[in-house]
Amino acid sequence: MAGKASTAVALLAGALCCVQAQFDFTLRPIIGILSQHPSDSILEGLEDKNYTSYIAASYVKHFESAGARVVPILINQDDAYYENLAKHLNGFVFPGGASSITSSSGYGAAGAKIYQLVREANLRGVYLPLWGTCLGFEMLTYLAAGEKKWLASCNASNKADRLNVSADYMDSRIFTQMPDNVIGFVRLMDTTANYHKWCMTPENFTLSGLADEFKLLATSYDFDDLEYVALMEHVALPIFGSQFHPEKNQFEWKDDSKHDAIPHSPQAVGVAQYFANFFANQARQNNQKFPTEEEETAALIYNYEPFFTQETSGFVQVYLFR
């Protein structure tokens, strides 16, 4: 496995050289966020429950706060739909949630297609970034490991934590661009919000072959002192993943016993804003756009209104789609 992985990484590194030589910039980045099937708790307070997918509004606000616009990506569409978006968007996000990361769910099936399209685009010389958060991080590990699960059960729901950085963490795109004070916040303070029951341990990160293609940048510990991968980035392609939720620090406010650990300090908000800014800047390095202003306008999240769902779910607001 290691030999094949090393060869693949060498090819990807060569492709990245081409990417860096060819990408252009946009000051109007548009990021696609993948939707997923809504839970009963999200729909509970709504009179009309005839919706097939949702996106938590906190993800939309997170990237809008960094100067990007958002397109919702629907599930259960044909390949042509995702192929079209891969030609016109400047970046993709796999958000957190509670769906299956396999093709048995609309989220998993669409994620597999988008992951394939992102890799193919980058190998062609199109700089097309992808970020996975929590469930999205887990789906990245599943897809990158040949659609095999290497996740371990863990106890890290409603937990604020710091990041334990790797020895070579500064040899990364994420940390080399991070201001010194923000690095101090993530290393010394509990500024990351964690809501997950599955973890990628450092041991499984290596055994799965992921270490041949991704850099393990930081770990955290669950309530039982199990160490798990908290942050990673691809060695060559603009693919990034965090097990924690940067968007919650700024935009999720439920304060019951299941949500009272979300850090809202100025330092935690600064950390969250950095991650939003970082990925928006990655998206700016792609100059794709929709063929017409009409098509762009029709695709944007502005065509939808968020629903207030905090009384029944952990999200303050969600966008719902038919």
Rank of each mutant, 00 (worst) to 15 (best):
K4C: 09
S6V: 13
L11M: 12
G14H: 10
A15Y: 04
V19K: 09
V19C: 14
T26H: 09
L27M: 13
I30G: 01
I31V: 13
L34M: 10
S35G: 10
K49W: 08
N50W: 00
S53E: 03
S58P: 00
F63C: 03
S65W: 00
G67D: 04
D79W: 00
Y82G: 05
N84W: 05
L89M: 03
F94H: 05
G97A: 03
S105R: 03
A110K: 00
Y115V: 07
L117W: 02
N122E: 07
G125N: 11
P129R: 08
T133Y: 06
M139L: 14
L140V: 09
Y142L: 05
G146A: 15
A152F: 03
A152N: 14
N158S: 10
N164F: 09
S166E: 07
D168V: 08
F175A: 04
D180W: 07
G184F: 05
V186Y: 04
T191W: 10
Y195N: 00
H196I: 00
H196A: 00
A211E: 11
E213D: 12
K215G: 09
L216T: 09
L216F: 07
T219F: 01
D222K: 00
D225V: 01
V229P: 09
V229T: 13
M232S: 12
L237D: 03
H245C: 14
H245R: 06
E247P: 06
W253I: 01
H264L: 04
H264Q: 03
A268E: 06
A272D: 12
A272E: 07
F275E: 12
F275Q: 14
A280G: 02
N281A: 08
N281T: 06
Q282Y: 06
A283V: 03
R284T: 13
N286F: 08
E294W: 04
F308E: 12
T312I: 01
G314S: 10
G314N: 11
